[in-house]
Amino acid sequence: MLLYLLLNLGSFSIPFLYSFEKKMRFIKHWKSVFLSLTIVSIIFLIWDGIFTARGIWGFNPDYHLNILLFGMPIDEWMFFFCIPYASIFIHYSLAYFKPNLVISEKVTKSITLFFIVILLPVIFMNTDKAYTFVNYIFLVFVLLMGFFFGIKDLQRFYLSFLIILLPFFIVNGVLTGTGIDEPVVWYNNAENLGIRLLTIPIEDIGYAFTMIFLNILLIEKFKKKPQIHK
């Protein structure tokens, strides 16, 4: 059964087609988006490969293609391009169609500091849980990056992330076993907090935030890179 492949393609296809929409023309930023996706996917695939090898999570062969690279199915490699692209598209669609829909800088900074303060004790109290520990360290790092270098991006992203969470819960819910006999992606609960939202480990929300917002920070950096004219 090609469930993982279909989830990837289904998530990617509609945002990609709408990227050519005449007004927004999101496709015009393809260089910045592709470069960002490549960099972030490399980081996450290294992390993914180590955790897969250590048995912190793994993949059900009944639901993915029988093509493995470094112990991970090719569907998992596709995940880091398809899902972030769809999420990034949602973020920039909101920016285009609702340009004034942002949180104030003061509130954004307060929200960011609140999450950092909450996450730090969770990190220090769970050094023995690899997914919790590493995931939340990455999340705190990205929040700090946003606080000091991308506060304007955070002002919009906190809102767009709430919208992104809707398809996230659908796709990630299926991946973790909602509505199917066995999960596509299984987790070793000894390596996480053991708190599930339906079938989704609570850490996955921070994982998604880090992956998507890091892409947005890089896209904005690449978009602002000065052009060299001959």
Rank of each mutant, 00 (worst) to 15 (best):
M1Y: 07
L3V: 12
L3K: 10
L7E: 14
G10E: 10
S13I: 06
F16E: 10
L17V: 15
L17N: 13
L35I: 15
T38Q: 04
I39Y: 12
S41E: 12
S41L: 04
I43E: 13
I50S: 04
F51K: 13
G55E: 13
N60G: 07
D62N: 12
Y63C: 01
L65D: 07
L69T: 08
P73R: 01
M78W: 00
F80M: 02
Y85R: 06
Y85H: 08
A86Y: 02
I103R: 09
S104V: 12
S104T: 15
K106Q: 12
K106E: 13
S110Y: 12
I111P: 07
P121V: 08
I123W: 06
F133A: 05
V134N: 05
F141Y: 09
V142A: 06
L143T: 05
L143K: 05
L144N: 12
I151T: 07
I151A: 02
L154I: 04
Q155V: 02
Y158W: 15
Y158T: 08
S160P: 12
L162Q: 09
I163C: 10
F168L: 10
F168V: 06
N172L: 09
G173L: 09
T176R: 01
G179L: 03
Y187A: 15
A190P: 02
N192Q: 10
I195L: 09
T199G: 06
E203W: 05
I205H: 06
F209G: 05
F209K: 07
I212V: 13
N215E: 01
L218T: 04
E220I: 00
F222A: 00
P226I: 01
Q227S: 00
Q227E: 02
I228W: 00
K230T: 01
